[in-house]
């Protein structure tokens, strides 16, 4: 997994609440059996004026010029500033894959849906919670200043603004450790194989029906 330490980049706005994962990456693109290549279809229905198809070349498609990511000032953005309950709906990990593939490293919002929040950490993408007032402030600064950049410093758990303000954020110890070091969860869990085996033996004794095989 990609590690995350300190990221500085242009911030782009996604100024609406309850952005669902269908909006982040519409269903027709979930037919891919790969993990990559979803960036060109990130926010497809908002970004383009036509209906997108899987495996389609996107360069000639008509763009919705009103959509932030199509505006010159937000090109190359790596921080997405969003509103509450970002990532609600479906569990599709294609949503963080699409954000990552587009180039985003961090999403800042007042709250996230649980499954999306969890999925981000598995992909080196940091979902970062700030208070509603702080997010409001970042939105106004972002709109007022072209080329507005934010720095996210994971070791010190701070968001730094161009004016020098710093906002602290919380992140789980374990998740922070994995992000900083780009650690693969599975390898870490397999180090605990003895504990898993011990649990299984005990359960097989007390609740054997839980181990009845699924048979054809």
């Amino acid at each position: 997994m990609k590690s995350f330490n300190r990221v500085t980049g242009i911030a782009a706005p996604m100024d609406r609440a309850n952005v669902d994962t269908d909006m982040i990456i519409p269903k027709q693109f979930l037919k891919s059996i790969k993990r990559t290549g979803f960036g060109k279809n990130l926010f497809d229905e908002l970004r383009y004026l036509d209906e997108g198809q899987p495996d389609q070349e996107c360069t000639g498609r008509p763009l919705n010029q009103e959509f932030a990511l199509n505006q010159a000032r937000y090109q190359g953005a790596s921080v997405l500033l969003a509103r509450k309950n970002f990532g609600c709906g479906s569990s599709r990990e294609h949503a963080p894959w699409a954000l990552d593939d587009y180039g985003f490293r961090c999403v800042i919002a007042p709250s996230f849906a649980d499954i999306f929040y969890n999925n981000c950490f598995k992909n080196g993408l940091l979902p970062l919670v700030l208070s509603e007032a702080e997010v409001d402030q970042l939105f106004s600064e972002l709109y007022a200043n072209e080329g507005y950049e934010l720095t996210i410093d994971l070791p010190s758990q701070k968001v730094l603004t161009p004016s020098g303000a710093a906002f602290s954020f919380e992140v789980d110890e374990f998740r922070k450790h994995c992000l900083l070091n780009g650690l693969d969860d599975i390898a870490l869990t397999l180090e605990q194989a003895d504990a898993i085996n011990a649990y299984e033996s005990k359960q097989r004794e007390s609740a054997p029906w839980l181990f009845d095989a699924v048979k054809n």
Binding site: R35, S91, R92, E93, P96, I115, N118, N119, K122, N123, D185, I186, T189, L190, Q192, I196, E200
Partner: peptide
């Protein structure tokens, strides 16, 4: 529900 990374995690570790 879980994401695809977790599907892989459960396949590999049952946890």
């Amino acid at each position: 529900g879980i994401g695809t990374s977790e599907v892989e995690h459960v396949l590999a570790t049952q946890c």
